[in-house]
Simulated assay, not measured.
Amino acid sequence: MARTWKCSGLRWSAEGPVLEWEGGRRTALTWGKRVAFGVEEGGVRTCVGARGHACPLGVVVPGRSTGARCEECARLDRAHSVAADTLADDPRPYRVYLAWFGPGMAKVGITGVERGSARLLEQGAVCFSWLGSGPLMAARRTEELLRAALRVPDRIPYADKRAVRAVLPGTAAERAAELAELHAKAVALTGWPESLDRAPFRPVDHVRVFGPAGVPAAAGEVSELVAGGAASGELVAAAGPDLHLATGSGSGSVDGSGVVVLDTRLLTGWGLVPGAGRGFDLPVRALRGAAGEGAGVQDGLF
C-alpha cells in the first residue's frame, strides 16, 4: 500500500518554490518538473491545526477552503499572528512595503526584516519596493497611514491576481510605474512615525523568478481536491501559492490549452499518494479573465 503524505504548503527559497511535507521532507520545484499525485481513496480533508499543534478534534473541513482550518484553530492561529495586531511587544525589526500585482492592484504590507523578500514571493507580488523599516508598531502605524491617505488596501484576493497574469505590461519599467507614483506620494505624507527609517524607491521585479517567458496562459484553475482524484502536469510557472501545470492535450483544462492553475493551499489537510502514470481528473473551473483581450502566449510572466 502506498505511503500517504501530508502537504504543509508551498514555500519560496532562494532557489525557487519548494513543497513542504509533514515530517520535514521538502520537494524543490523546477521548471519542467513533473508534478503528479493522487488523493487518498475514501479520504477526507481534516483540519491542519494551529501554531504547530494538531487539531484536537480532527474536524473535517471543506475541500474548497484555502485555510484548511476549523473555526477554533483558525481563531487560535490568527490570535498569534502579526496581522492580528496582538504582538505589540515583538522586539524584532519590520519593513513596510508596497507590492504590485497588476494594473490597479497595489497593496501595502509589513514583514519581518529577517524574512527578506520571502513574504512578497509567497503573495505572488509581480514587483515591490520597500518603504521603510523600524519597530513593529511603527511599521503598523505607517501601514495604516498609507491605507487611509492613499486608499491602498492591505489585501488583494488571489483570484484577482490570477486574472491579470497573462496580460501584464511587458517591461519591468512599465510594471514598476504605478509603484513609483505611490511611493512618491507615500514619502510625501506627514505623520510618519519618527522611529521608522524611510527607504528610497528601488523596485524589485519577480517576473523571471516566477517563470520563463512564452508560457501559454492558463485557462482553468483547480476548484478543489476530491477523494480518489489525481493531478499530473509539467510545472511551467509558479507565483505565490500557485503552480501552473501543463497537463498535455488539453486534459484537465476548460478550453483545450492544457495549462491549469493549482493553488497548493488546497493540498493541505488531504492524504496524498504518488500519482505516477495517472491523468488529471480534479474539478477545474474557468479562470476569470483568462479569455479576455490579450490572453495567450506573451513575453511576460505567464
Rank of each mutant, 00 (worst) to 15 (best):
R11N: 08
S13Y: 01
A14I: 07
E20I: 03
A28C: 09
L29F: 08
G32L: 12
G32F: 12
K33F: 05
R34T: 15
R45E: 02
R45S: 05
R45W: 04
T46M: 11
V48H: 02
G49E: 08
H53S: 10
P56E: 05
P56L: 05
L57R: 13
G58V: 07
T66D: 07
C73I: 10
C73T: 11
V82K: 00
V82S: 08
A84Q: 11
L87N: 02
Y94A: 02
Y97V: 06
Y97W: 03
A106R: 01
G116I: 14
R119L: 11
V126E: 04
C127W: 01
F128R: 04
S129C: 15
G134P: 02
L136A: 07
L136C: 03
A138V: 09
A138E: 14
A139S: 14
L146I: 06
A148N: 04
R151E: 14
R155L: 03
I156T: 12
I156G: 00
Y158R: 12
Y158A: 09
A163F: 06
A163H: 02
V164H: 01
R165K: 07
A166V: 03
R175N: 06
A177Q: 11
A180I: 00
A186M: 09
V187C: 10
L189R: 08
T190W: 01
E194I: 09
L196G: 10
D205Y: 12
R208S: 15
G211I: 09
A217Y: 01
A238G: 09
A239G: 12
A239L: 13
A239T: 11
A239Q: 08
H244F: 15
S253G: 12
G256C: 04
G271S: 10
V273D: 02
D281N: 15
D281C: 13
G292I: 00
A295I: 00
G296Y: 03
V297K: 15
G300T: 02
